[in-house]
Design a protein around this nucleic acid. Structure first.
Lengths: 142, 142
DNA sequence: AAAGATTGACTAATCAATCTTG
DNA sequence: CAAGATTGATTAGTCAATCTTT
């Protein structure tokens, strides 16, 4: 297996393990948790386009993902006072609680499945590769 | 960003870069290439369940993926003489050609986007992590 | 014109039910 | 009854068209 195959296989399996653990324990899905994390990080100032950019899905998909989170009562869209084209997406109390408890399950699951040394080494290498990739794709887009 | 976030973000971006390059050059998609690679590796002895297991999708999804490859003339299902429940999935000549040319585009794209040292380091660490993960999930399934 | 967002048509997954063969 | 495979209903993406606001 070359690097690309290992990367893809490992990511798929680890994502699935986290997602399965979340669902089994009655939490939001891994995809929903990813969105809640972005919204949490933006602390009241996040828009749909921020969700889209941070998790690598199209704006249309992000809009629908936010629809579902809103339907489930985890977020609300507030009018953006600075720009009437967009809404600000903010966590409800239920959303903040769901984020906290899902994050705990996620982290507990990862602790169980990861090896500290290999994780640190992979993190460093992937950070280098990510920098290079973001440079390279910025060039192509320009 | 912690390890999980970096891993997911990098995998999504690199997958997208490879998939985009393949499509732009008129090749099969990255998902189809992954399936063709499994079928190629099994050298005439691959079944739908092998495609499913190798690329981490359900058997139902693999059945439909193989349907589409068959519709596009890249593979055919032959009766399995050893087990009448399953078919053997084999590459057609067109499928073998598509596999070869898509693989070249994939590899050229990766050469451009990867850094040799970081790639080697990440490969080693991910291989360790993958072993541990497969052990851990085997335990849970048992 | 460009940016943010939404929506509809389409694609490719999931899960569960079902069928056939081992 | 297990294993391999297929299929239908559902879910969550993509892309392209459209609308509003900057």
């Amino acid at each position: 297996m070359d690097f690309f195959d290992i990367l893809v296989r490992y990511e798929v399996k680890l994502w699935d393990a986290v997602d399965t653990a979340l669902i089994r324990e009655g939490q939001v899905s891994a995809a929903q948790l990813q969105a809640l994390a972005v919204i949490h990080r933006h602390a009241g100032a996040g828009r749909v386009v921020d969700v889209s950019g941070s998790i690598g899905i199209t704006v249309g998909a992000a809009s629908k993902l936010v629809d579902r989170l809103e339907r489930d009562g985890l977020i609300i869209r507030l009018p953006n006072p600075a720009d009437r084209r967009s809404s600000l997406v903010v966590l409800t109390d239920a959303g903040a609680a769901a984020y906290d408890s899902a994050t705990r399950v996620r982290n507990r699951t990862l602790e169980r499945l990861l090896d500290p040394e290999a994780t640190a080494s992979a993190s460093a290498a992937l950070a280098t590769l990510l920098d290079r990739l973001e440079e390279a794709t910025a060039e192509v887009d320009a």
